[in-house]
């Protein structure tokens, strides 16, 4: 008894706009605020058209101050609104670090649930788009390490809309990270109506028997390419996972996959040291150690700042590096 779902073809950035518009139409308490989000529609056009539809009271160009944006959003959220605060780039979130670490993430626990912060922080991030310095960092693990905030990273338009709606509906703060490289890389069918993708659930993009490839954000395309080429060239089949949420991790999905394949490669563009990949390794160690047929490998960015864009391609993991890692551990 399925009724046809009406869909439209959207890029990821359009799906993000669509998610905000969908929620703003339904709920008067949802606000959008940030730098250049109004008339300009955001530097990536993620809030395009929202001020025209919802007015200057609900789509607000703030003064240029990240601590101000997030600090006041905490107040708005504690007092009846659901703010969606945009950071122009994740690399500029640091002035707000104090507000997120010492307040947004712990007001619920400090007040034993009396005050809560149902807020979403959206931020474009990641390298590979020839952006100037500081714009390209992947610092997701600074936030997965913060108790009290969820961290979500979609890699495509469908997940972006469903996850952003779920984040707005979530009663707790959510950091919603938007890989810039995925903003316009694909256009896919996205339902016109409201739907959610559950926070904390990853996705299996491809079934395979020999090895689990685990990635998120812009690295998903990289591992998909590596998986395809490994199957064609070597007959190695990969179980490809897009984690989609980095805190809390989808323990069941990772466990099930690794227990099936007995091998894993984790790929992320953030530096290896202190990266979320290490949490995935720990999780596999906790749940599946005796199922492993070889050591787990990580393919990551270097322990260096993301370099200036003329050489950033040499920082980012690519399919070649992933394939080498696969070969190393399959032949271990």
């Amino acid at each position: 008894m399925s009724t046809a779902v009406k869909t439209q073809k959207l890029t990821m950035v359009q799906a993000i706009t669509d998610a905000m518009a969908t929620m703003m139409r339904e709920h008067d308490d949802v606000l959008v605020l940030g730098e250049d989000v109004g008339k300009n529609g955001g530097v990536f056009r993620a809030t395009e058209g929202l001020q025209a539809e919802f007015g200057e009271q609900r789509v607000i160009d703030t003064p240029l101050a990240e601590s101000g944006i997030i600090g006041t959003s905490i107040g708005l959220a504690m007092n009846g609104f659901r703010p969606i605060a945009e950071m122009q780039f994740l690399g500029f979130i640091y002035p707000a670090f104090n507000q997120i670490m010492t307040h947004a993430s712990r007001i619920r626990s400090r007040t034993l649930g009396h005050f809560t912060v149902p807020m979403v922080i959206r931020a474009p991030f990641g390298a590979g788009v020839r952006a100037p310095e500081i714009h390209s960092d992947s610092v997701e693990s600074l936030f997965t390490h913060m108790p009290g905030i969820k961290v979500v990273v979609p890699s495509n338009a469908y997940d972006a809309k469903g996850l952003l709606i779920a984040s707005i509906e979530d009663p707790d703060p959510v950091l919603f990270l938007e890989p810039m490289r995925c903003y316009r890389s694909h256009k896919i069918e996205v339902p016109e109506d409201k739907y959610t993708v559950e926070i904390g659930k990853g996705a299996r993009l491809q079934e395979g028997e020999d090895i689990s490839l685990i990635a998120w954000g812009a690295m998903v395309d990289v591992v998909k390419k590596a998986a395809k080429e490994m199957e064609e060239a070597e007959g190695i089949t990969c179980d490809v996972l897009d984690l989609r949420t980095l805190y809390p991790l989808d323990r069941d999905l990772i466990t099930e996959s690794v227990q099936k394949t007995g091998r894993a490669v984790i790929v992320h563009e953030a530096p290896g040291t202190g990266g979320v990949g290490n949490d995935v390794v720990s999780l596999i160690n906790d749940t599946s150690f005796l199922h492993l047929r070889s050591p787990i490998k990580r393919v990551t960015g270097h322990d260096t700042p993301v370099p200036m864009f003329a050489i950033e391609d040499h920082y980012l993991p690519d399919a070649e590096r992933v394939k080498q890692a696969i070969i190393d551990i399959v032949r271990f």
Binding site: G272, T273, H302, D303, T304, P305, P307, M308, A310, I311, H314, Y315
Partner: peptide, 26 residues
């Protein structure tokens, strides 16, 4: 072309073992 090794060589006065290892594998 831009000097790629600049990425590794100037993070610290003396590279740490992890950067050194990443540099060698690069």
């Amino acid at each position: 072309p831009a000097e790629i090794t600049d990425m590794f060589n100037h993070v610290f006065h003396t590279p740490t073992w992890s950067i050194q290892e990443q540099f060698e594998s690069f």
